[in-house]
Nucleic acid binder design. Structure first.
Length: 297
DNA sequence: GACCAGGTAGCAA
DNA sequence: TTGCTACATGGT
């Protein structure tokens, strides 16, 4: 079984794996000690995910990010956890606002993730009007009920279901799993992908705003969920999902950015959060602010 | 028992 | 276009 260790000192701006995986941006990793989202973080718990049928385990030790997988996986780990992002470069040039500075300090070492797109799309369809812990538990349930079992190093893991596997579920079954009114959204979106009518990757290559518009054709996907898919999966780091927490931040700290509708408020806050003259990395700033506001105290 | 959580679809004006 | 409102569930 290939293993490896990526020295933390080699990563620009360091890395905090716990923050990165438990800050509510990805719902596709699970903690092997079963203590996801508990504040106590003694030891170096392993996290795992399944990508294209391959189990990938990672943990953070004092000096490295260790990985363990069924194939050579360093490049994949670097991609999934965005280990090549240069945090000092991003935050060195980020806006000089008191609340933002507090968020940078609070979440030092937090990196964005690059989730596989279909699982990410479904997990954020589930996310509406839900708390972070429950979103994670619902994606875990879908993996357990509909995902393929993968054997790895003596253990059994569950992959997130494919579009075909989820399209085979019924609304009624998913309601029985406590997905509530999101159940038909999940089935219908999975069917669109499984039937070849649409794929979230078709957003790639489009301008940011066209890409956001493109994703909203999926059932259960509006501007906010589309922004999450763009930011946490498709590498549009300028995307700033306007959820309840960010809307509160706008109200309290950047009231001039509230333009009354999503598209214009989005543009204003992206300019405010962005590095330099444009909106570069505005989504990076957003993720720090979200985590800071949601979990401080 | 309200109130809230990483909102959206459907419908009326 | 914009402005309601219904929608499930579980925790505080």
């Amino acid at each position: 079984m290939p293993t490896g260790a990526i020295p933390t000192a080699s990563l620009a701006g360091g890395m905090d794996l716990h923050l990165t995986l438990e800050s509510g941006q990805s719902y596709l990793w699970r903690r092997e000690d079963g203590r996801m989202y508990e504040n106590a973080t003694e030891g170096s718990p392993w996290y795992y995910t399944v990508v294209d049928g391959e189990v990938v385990r990672v943990r953070q030790t004092e000096s490295a990010i260790e990985w363990h997988a069924s194939t050579e996986a360093e490049a994949l780990v670097r991609e999934l956890l965005r280990l090549d992002d240069d945090l000092p470069e991003i935050f060195g040039a980020a806006p000089d606002e008191q609340m933002l500075e507090a968020a940078y300090e609070y979440a030092r070492g937090l990196r964005l993730v690059a989730d596989p797109v279909f699982p990410n799309l479904i997990s954020f369809i589930l996310s509406q009007q839900m708390r972070v812990e429950r979103i994670h538990s619902m994606t875990t349930t879908l993996a357990r009920e509909y995902g393929a079992e993968v054997e790895f190093d003596g253990g059994t893991y569950h992959a997130f279901p494919t579009p075909e596997e989820l399209a085979g579920a019924t609304e009624s079954e998913l309601r029985d799993l406590a997905l509530g009114y999101r159940a038909p959204y999940v089935v219908r979106t999975a069917e669109m992908v499984a039937d070849g009518d649409a794929h979230p990757n078709e957003a790639l290559g489009l301008s940011y705003e066209d890409a956001r518009e493109s994703l909203t054709r999926f059932v259960g996907v509006g501007d906010k969920v589309a922004d999450c898919v763009l930011l946490f999966s498709l590498g549009y780091l300028e995307a700033v999902p306007l959820d309840t927490w960010i809307r509160t931040a706008i109200e309290d700290h950047f009231p001039d950015c509230d333009c009354g509708n999503y598209a214009e408020t989005s543009q204003a806050i992206r300019q405010r959060f962005g590095v330099g003259d444009g909106d570069d990395y505005a989504g990076y700033v957003q993720t720090y602010v979200f985590h800071y506001l949601r979990t401080r105290e």
